[in-house]
Design a protein around this nucleic acid. Structure first.
Lengths: 195, 195
DNA sequence: TCGATCCCGAACATCGTGTCTAGTATTCTG
DNA sequence: CAGAATACTAGACACGATGTTCGGGATCGA
C-alpha cells in the first residue's frame, strides 16, 4: 500500500479533485458516484477498487489535510503558554487560508457533517489537553469539558463563517478577533482578573 | 389546513413520534421511509399525501419546536439589558431541557445537519439584532457578524455537548457557565473594562 | 343511509448502489 | 522482446429505496 503505482496515485488524485469540484458545485449530499465517475473520467469498477463508497473517498481527502494540520500543531505544541489556545487556532486559520478551495468544499456550508464532526473532535481533544493543567492549577469551578467545548465551538464557528463568506479577513486578523473574544472568558474561568 | 380532521392530526402525530424514536435509535440519515411506515403502522400513500418526503416530516417536527421557542424569545425580548445575550441563551437551554427527548433526536449527534443549520441561523439572527446597537454605540473594532457568530457557535456548541452528554447540569447552571465564558469577551469587544 | 374524506395495500417506474466478469492497456521483469 | 503482473474499462446485474398511482375499504358528518 506504501509503494503505490504511479497510475494508482494519479487515479486517486483525479478522483479527489473531481470530488472537491463537485462539492463546490452541488454540495456533498447531492453528489452521486456516477457524477464523480463522469467528472474524473474513471471507470465504475476502478472507483470501487479504490474506495468502498463515496464517504471513503471523502475521508481519504480529509485525512491528508488532517495529518498536515496535526503536524503543524505538533510543531508548535511545546511552547504554548497562553491559557487561551489562540496560537493553535491561528494555525488552523492559516492552514484553512492556505487551502482555501479544499476547506471551502470540506468545511463550508456545502461540505459534509462528517468532516465537521471529525474536525470538531480533533480540535476539542487538543483544546482539552491544553486547558486541563491550567484549569486544575487554578482550581476553577468550570469543568474542563465545558470550557474546551466553548472554545472549540466558537473557533470552528468563526472558521466556517469565515469560509462561507469567502475569507473576508486575514487569518491573523481573525485569530486576533478570536483571542479578543475568547481570552477574557477563559482567564475569568481561571479565576484571575482580566489583565 | 387549519381545521384538520382529527384522524389527520392523529396520523401526523404518530408519524412524528415514529420519526423521533427512530432518530434516537439509528440516526436520521440511516432512516428509510419504510422504517417510519412500519413503526407508525401507516400506509405508504398516506405518508406521501401528508409529506413530500422524509425531510418534510422532519421540518414539520422542527417547526413546532421552533415556533414555541420564538414565542418564548419574544416574551422576553423587551427587557434584555445585558450586552451578552445570556438570558436568551438561558431560554434556549430551558426549552431544550423541557423537551429533552425531542432535542436529543433533532439537535443531538444523531440529528440532522438540517436542524442544526436552521437553529444556528435562528440564534445568529437574534444575536445579531441584539448586539448591533451595543456594538455601534461602543464603536467597537469588531464587526457585529463576527461577535454574533462567536456567541452563537459557542452557545450552540455547549447546547449540543450538553444534549449529547445527557444533560449533566441544570439549564440555569449551564447558562451561568455560558455567561462566565462569553460575557467578558463581549464586554471587552465593547471596549469597556471587565467589571 | 348517503356522501365526503381519509386511509390502506399493492403495483409500478425510476434511480442510485455496489458487485462481478471479461477484456484491454500499461508497466515491470527476465 | 516476450510474458507476467498489475492497473483500468465497459457493461450487465441484483438489490434496495424513492415517490406515484389506483381501486377499494374504513370512518366520519349530515
Amino acid at each position: 500500500m506504501v509503494d503505490l503505482d504511479r497510475r494508482v496515485r494519479r487515479t486517486r488524485r483525479i478522483l479527489h479533485e473531481a470530488l472537491i469540484a463537485l462539492i463546490l458545485e452541488k454540495g456533498y449530499e447531492r453528489i452521486t458516484v456516477q457524477d464523480i465517475l463522469d467528472r474524473a473520467d474513471v471507470g465504475r469498477s476502478t472507483f470501487y477498487s479504490h474506495f468502498r463508497d463515496k464517504e471513503a473517498l471523502l475521508v481519504a481527502s480529509f485525512d491528508g489535510l488532517r495529518d498536515e494540520l496535526r503536524r503543524e500543531f505538533d510543531a508548535m505544541r511545546p511552547d504554548m503558554p497562553a491559557p487561551d489556545a489562540e496560537p493553535a487556532i491561528a494555525v488552523i486559520f492559516g492552514h484553512a487560508h492556505r487551502h482555501r478551495r479544499v476547506y471551502q468544499a470540506l468545511c463550508g456550508k456545502r461540505g459534509s457533517e462528517f468532516v465537521h464532526g471529525h474536525l470538531h473532535r480533533l480540535i476539542a481533544a487538543m483544546m482539552r489537553d491544553h486547558l486541563e493543567p491550567h484549569l486544575t492549577a487554578a482550581d476553577s469551578d468550570l469543568p474542563v469539558d465545558v470550557v474546551a467545548e466553548f472554545c472549540t465551538s466558537a473557533a470552528l464557528g468563526l472558521l466556517t463563517w469565515w469560509i462561507g463568506h469567502d475569507f473576508p479577513y486575514s487569518p491573523t486578523r481573525l485569530a486576533e478577533m478570536y483571542r479578543k473574544l475568547a481570552a477574557p472568558g477563559v482567564r475569568a474561568a481561571l479565576g484571575r482578573a482580566a489583565e
